[in-house]
């Protein structure tokens, strides 16, 4: 595998939820080192695509390769692969009976034999990287939405994964918190040499930090290119999404669209 090999490669992918096909004929190569924004309206299948990359959802057809290897089906192999993939969930997924520091320490304790003192130092470094060293001993319920999101980000980065996945990182955040989170995504990606995939419908906050953009709608990829190309696109479907118009090629009614996430 060369350095130029894509970090994620989807080939002829079809994803089903039950008997319903959410995405079909997906061909995508995510290059190493940049930030790829996966955009699309709610219910278009963006999170389903992430579920396939993390191995939560098995492909109905086609293949998914992550970090140069096919996503394994076996539980043990899958858990090992996930140690090298950080994921920030839409709902954060912080364990509510653990403090911020204990949450960040969770993957370190599970996957390393480091002494407690070293883990504590690493945890504080990770929290410092997201600007939250001061809340190390606070419980998730004591944190604001933006702070909890950043703690979850610190936890996702705990094992220094080469690939970071963000599922709607701005969901439920105010504009200031959104700005903080997006600038963190860019800064961490550059300073830690990561590859990031950001799944979101927040187009205007995400495009400024993205290197590549993909738009998903109507069960497939309808655009792939640079953010500049996206903004310049005359495709009516892309235009409708970017401008947030209710009428157009993307059906607002879920039944007409025939998709759920």
């Amino acid at each position: 595998m060369t350095e130029a090999a894509p970090i994620v490669r989807l080939t002829g992918l079809r994803l089903d939820r039950g008997s319903h096909t959410v995405l079909r004929d997906i061909n995508l190569q995510v290059p190493r080192g940049g930030i790829t924004a996966v955009l699309g309206p709610s219910g278009s299948g963006k999170s389903t695509l992430l579920a396939a990359i993390t191995g939560e959802l098995e492909a109905a057809a086609g293949s998914v390769e992550v970090l140069g290897q096919p996503v394994p089906q076996g539980k043990r192999a899958l858990l090992q692969l996930r140690q090298r993939v950080g994921m920030l969930l839409q709902g954060n997924g912080l364990l509510t009976d653990l403090t911020a520091a204990e949450n960040v320490a969770l993957p370190l304790r599970a996957h390393t034999d480091l002494p407690d003192a070293v883990i504590r130092t690493l945890v504080l470094m990770k929290l410092h990287a997201v600007g939250l060293r001061a809340v190390a001993d606070a419980y998730p319920r004591e944190l604001s939405g933006g702070m909890a999101r950043r703690v979850a980000l610190a936890r996702a980065l705990a094992l220094d994964p080469p690939l970071m996945l963000y599922d709607e990182p701005l969901s439920g955040l105010d504009p200031i918190a959104s700005g903080v989170v997006m600038s963190l995504v860019r800064r961490l990606n550059d300073t830690l040499g990561l590859t990031s995939i950001v799944v979101t419908h927040h187009v205007h906050e995400t495009l400024p930090i993205a290197d590549h953009a993909i738009v998903i709608a109507n069960g497939g990829i309808v655009f792939s290119g640079s953010p500049h190309e996206l903004e310049a696109s005359r495709d009516p479907l892309v235009q409708q999404f970017l401008r947030g118009e209710p009428d157009g090629p993307i059906a607002f009614d879920a039944e007409l669209r025939g998709e759920t996430e």
Binding site: L79, L81, R82, Q83, L89, G93, T96, A110, A156
Partner: peptide, 17 residues
């Protein structure tokens, strides 16, 4: 509640059973 608030999903995604 852990299931409803993505805590169980998060554990799996961190490579923790």
């Amino acid at each position: 509640l852990m299931r409803a608030t993505d805590q169980i999903t998060a554990l799996g995604l961190m490579g923790i059973d």
